[in-house]
Design a protein around this nucleic acid. Structure first.
Length: 446
RNA sequence: CGGGGCGUAGCGCAGCCUGGUAGCGCGUCUGUUUUGGGUACAGAAGGUCGUGAGUUCGAAUCUCGCCGCCCCGACCA
């Protein structure tokens, strides 16, 4: 993409309403524009990141055997009366009346609708296990939206639902989700810690929240520092292997890690040696639940088991805040100059900075690099504006592309360009061909 | 919803107290200049002062209503 043909309205000054760093940078980098309180439009750069996160989640969900579907944002109140949540959910649920006076609502979550789909089509234990998920807009009429996309009223969320014949199978689904979530966050360059949590309005018995450590987090968290050392890395995972999933889940849930909701100071002090105790803040970026037959029983989502009995299915649900993750990643990865995107979610793989726009040789060198990267299946952002070097550098730093190739007449005289890592600030001079090769290497396999 | 604050050019703000018909910086446009970390000079465009009513000869400024946004609290992916 050429900067001159892109829509990237960067701001030099910070809009007054933005309080936290991710919100400030998202506005300054031209990623979002507020439409009203807690509701945002996504501009091209922000939309790219949102799509990248979404893509990773889709890939990891399907790798775990889960099936993507898409359910409507507007739902009839009827199903919600059936589960009893129409009255329970409270003011947070946005209620709408259609022209016939029918009660509708903008979905805050979709247990009812997915259960309705399930009971209409699944009748035998032989069709289990089944896990359906979607990535869809949700609306929760928060009392006080704030922090940009971190606590919007409208937000983009992955929500999944597993249906299993009994508690043991549902437990495997729970573990499987934990592993698939850990993998997803890792691919996004995030350290997200599963923490024992409260179930809130979803209800249920077992639940973990995934927290990204950041000073601006809304939850206070208490954990054993050992947990931040854990990593899935290149481990081969077989999602149909109950033991492997259970082992990984145990690995991540054994060290003490809880939010203020469930924190137990005495247990914390008993279990964790003092030098490993950490008290910090975290951003919730996902949660998984097992809630048994809470919805299946009242809504009649039953199957016939192998003894010919009608039994309600055991269910769980799982959510990842996709739009919130955009903010959370920035909170976890930025410096005083701007965003530092992890390679997994970056809106463009590399930036090309032309230091002497209009100089025939420099222009051509930039075009060649641009073509070579594009040829390699990568998406560069070429800053071809008539701007001074300083302005171009400042923009690149702000929008946070992890790699930058700087091309100027001075270097070209010696046959070199500069390759700079946004995270470390380290630069090296090398030939244009080598610079392209290095970038290809960095993104190989992703 | 309780408490606090704000709404003036695309963005950041001053002007309001003490009414006299709107200004600064950045950005934008034109030209010249400059070119390896937000260049300099000259010129230009751009505002129903959130909105409705009231007071007044006269309202951005005073009064009341409404709308919107932000911050603190109780709640949440």
């Amino acid at each position: 993409m050429r900067f001159s043909r892109y829509f990237l309205p960067v701001l030099k000054e910070t809009p007054a309403e933005a309080q936290i760093v991710s919100h400030r940078y998202m506005l300054r980098a031209g990623m979002i524009k507020q439409a009203s309180a807690g509701i945002y439009s996504w501009l091209p750069l922000g939309f790219r990141v949102l799509r990248n996160i979404e893509r990773i989640i889709h890939e990891e969900q399907q790798r775990a055997g889960h099936l993507p579907i898409l359910m409507p944002t507007l739902q009839s109140a009827e199903l919600w009366r059936e589960s009893g949540r129409y009255d329970d959910y409270g003011q947070e649920m946005l209620r709408i009346t259609d022209r016939h006076g029918r009660d509708m609502l903008y979905t805050p979550t979709a247990e009812e609708l997915v259960t309705d789909i399930f009971r209409a089509h699944v009748t035998s234990y032989k069709d289990l296990p089944l896990t359906l998920y979607q990535i869809q807009w949700k609306f929760r009429d928060e009392i006080r939206p704030r922090f940009g996309v971190m606590r919007g009223r409208e937000f983009y969320m992955k929500d999944g639902y597993n249906f299993d014949i009994d508690a043991e199978h549902a437990l495997h689904a729970y573990n499987r989700h934990m592993v698939s979530y850990l993998r997803s966050y890792e691919r996004m360059g995030l350290k997200a810690i599963p923490m024992r949590a409260d179930s809130g309005p979803i209800g249920g018995e077992d639940t973990h929240e995934f927290l990204v450590l950041a000073e601006t987090g809304e939850s206070e968290v208490f954990y054993d520092s050992a947990i931040t050392e854990l990593s899935l890395g290149a481990r081969e995972i077989d999602y149909s292997d109950w033991d492997q999933c259970a082992l990984i889940a145990r690995e991540w849930t054994t060290p003490y890690a809880r939010t203020d909701e469930t924190h137990d100071q005495a247990l914390f002090e008993r279990e964790v040696p003092e030098e490993r105790r950490r008290v910090s803040r975290g951003i919730e970026v996902g949660q998984i639940f097992y809630f048994g037959t809470k919805y299946s029983a009242p809504m009649g989502a039953t199957v016939t088991n192998d003894r010919g009995e009608q039994v309600p299915v055991h269910m769980g649900s799982h959510g990842i805040g996709v739009s919130r993750l955009v903010g959370a990643i920035i909170e976890a990865s930025h410096d005083e100059r701007g965003i530092v995107w992890p390679e997994g979610v970056t809106p463009f793989h590399a930036g090309i900075v032309n230091l002497r726009q209009g100089d025939a040789e420099t222009d051509r060198a930039c075009e060649d690099i641009y073509a070579a990267l594009t040829e390699a299946g990568l998406e560069p952002l070429y800053d071809d504006r008539e701007e001074r070097a300083g302005a171009k550098f400042a923009t690149m730093d702000l929008i946070g592309l992890p790699w930058r190739i700087t091309v100027g007449p001075r270097g070209l005289k010696n046959g070199v360009v500069e390759l700079t890592c946004r995270r470390t600030g380290e630069s090296e001079e090398l030939s244009p061909e080598l610079a392209v090769a290095r970038i290809r290497e960095i993104y190989a396999g992703s």
